[in-house]
Computed example of a mutant assay.
Amino acid sequence: MNSNHLLLEEPIRMASILEPSRSGYFPSMTRIVGTLGPKSRSVEVISRCLMAGMSVARFDFTWGDAEYHQETLENLRIAIKKTKKLCAVSFISSSLDEKPYVITIWVMLDTTGPELLVVNKGDQPIPLEADSLLVLTPDQEKEASPSLLPINFSGLAKAVKPGDTIFLGQYLFTGSETTSVWMEVSEVKGDDVICLIKNSAVLAGTLYTLHVSQVHIDLPTLPDKDKEVISTWGVKNSVDFLSLSHARTGQDIRQAREYLSKLGDLSQTQIYAKIENVEGLVNFDEILQEADGIILARGNLGIDLPPEKVFLFQKAAVYKCNMAGKPAVVTRVVDSMTDNLRPTRAEATDVANAVLDGNYLVL
């Protein structure tokens, strides 16, 4: 066989691309983690998610109380009985086809962690105009307005300096400049931080998060609020995975594991470290050594890192996870499908590359 023939060898048989897709004999090694939120918590929608291939149900305690998420979990259990699809909390049911079944649900509890939140007591949209000033204040008694936003952290003024970048929005971040803003710290005045808004946007909904680019936030990785949720809702439902948000060092994982072991029932719960900033990137090797799995939160990473650098870290991190035999999960894979039924070509390619690299997925 000559070298010219080798150059023309097809890595993929092109004719096969035109053949109809069909289910393979072997199940997919990639799992889909689905976050059950306000628009996906009904029995009907969860059933459709299970039929489409959702493997793990994720409960995000950034919003909603324990009662709210408990109702969602009960809907998930009903949907599993209805569809007879396992959603990789375990419970026993005897109502499927009048025969006893053991239904396994893999449940992931996502902590809030040291997340900065805007305290918005109202539900009216807040318009923010480019080139105007916005005050971030720890005084939570004040009302949110286009010129002032109360936040849940009193140490922001000590953490930032003029010139630092702060991102603000309901989700971090879809890339849509109509729902999130980026700002530059203009002045620190007492406990208040005065920012210059760089783009116009309308903040809608009740949850807005802040991310200060490459600045250490002096808050515990597992705050008391998260511990309360874990010790109550988490224990009650025997959660299988704890998604530890904003993991920054290996010590964060060790402390979380120590806390879980004290609860008894959660001593076997696996900890997935969520890498969301440069601190987690710098300490990635020690975090990987301590954690049971890794979640790459690309929304926040795309703020701390230049967007063109995120994929390089993703490639390197997933390779290291594969070498260590630990699952890797990537987030924000189909943002456009919150509004559209089909993913973009770029999103489909992104998902395909993630699968080929050896990722789990999260939607």
Rank of each mutant, 00 (worst) to 15 (best):
R342S: 11
G299N: 08
A256Q: 06
I294Y: 10
R332P: 00
G293V: 01
L301V: 06
Q289D: 15
I253S: 02
I271P: 03
E258V: 05
Q314V: 02
N237W: 13
L301R: 05
V215D: 04
D339N: 12
P327K: 14
H216R: 14
Q270W: 02
L312Y: 04
P307E: 11
G264T: 00
L222Y: 05
H216L: 12
L305V: 01
D224T: 11
V318A: 06
K236Q: 11
N300V: 00
R345H: 03
S261Q: 15
H246W: 14
A297F: 14
G264L: 10
C321W: 09
V282T: 13
K262V: 04
L260E: 12
I295N: 05
R298Q: 12
V334W: 05
T269V: 03
K315T: 06
N277M: 13
K315V: 02
F311N: 07
R254A: 07
G264S: 06
S261L: 11
A247Y: 01
L312H: 02
L266C: 02
L341I: 07
L222D: 02
G325H: 09
V282F: 15
L242C: 09
P220W: 05
K320Q: 10
L260F: 13
K274G: 01
I287N: 00
T232D: 10
A247T: 15
M337R: 03
R298M: 12
Q314L: 10
K225A: 14
D226M: 09
Q214Y: 06
L242R: 00
N283E: 09
Y259T: 04
P343L: 04
P307D: 08
W233G: 03
E258T: 12
K236S: 10
R254E: 14
V333W: 00
D226N: 05
V282N: 14
I294T: 07
Y259G: 09
V330K: 08
E308C: 11
E258D: 15
L288C: 07
G234M: 04
L242V: 02
V239I: 15
M337N: 04
D292W: 12
E279C: 06
E276F: 10
V215E: 11
T344Y: 01
S336W: 09
S213G: 00
G234N: 02
V215Y: 13
A297W: 14
R257L: 08
T269Q: 03
R254W: 07
Y259P: 01
M323I: 08
G325N: 10
L219C: 01
P220M: 06
L244D: 11
V330N: 05
G299P: 13
I217G: 01
R342A: 14
D226S: 03
V215N: 10
F311R: 08
L219K: 03
R248Y: 08
V330L: 15
T249I: 04
T249C: 12
A273H: 10
N277D: 15
N340V: 01
D224C: 05
V235S: 12
Q251K: 10
S238H: 14
R248F: 10
F241T: 00
S336E: 12
R254G: 11
D224H: 07
Q251N: 14
A346K: 00
K225R: 15
T269I: 02
S243L: 13
K320N: 02
P223K: 01
D335G: 05
D339H: 05
Q268K: 12
V229Q: 00
V235L: 12
H216E: 10
I230R: 06
S213H: 07
V278I: 13
D224I: 08
L222H: 03
Q251F: 09
S267W: 08
T344F: 03
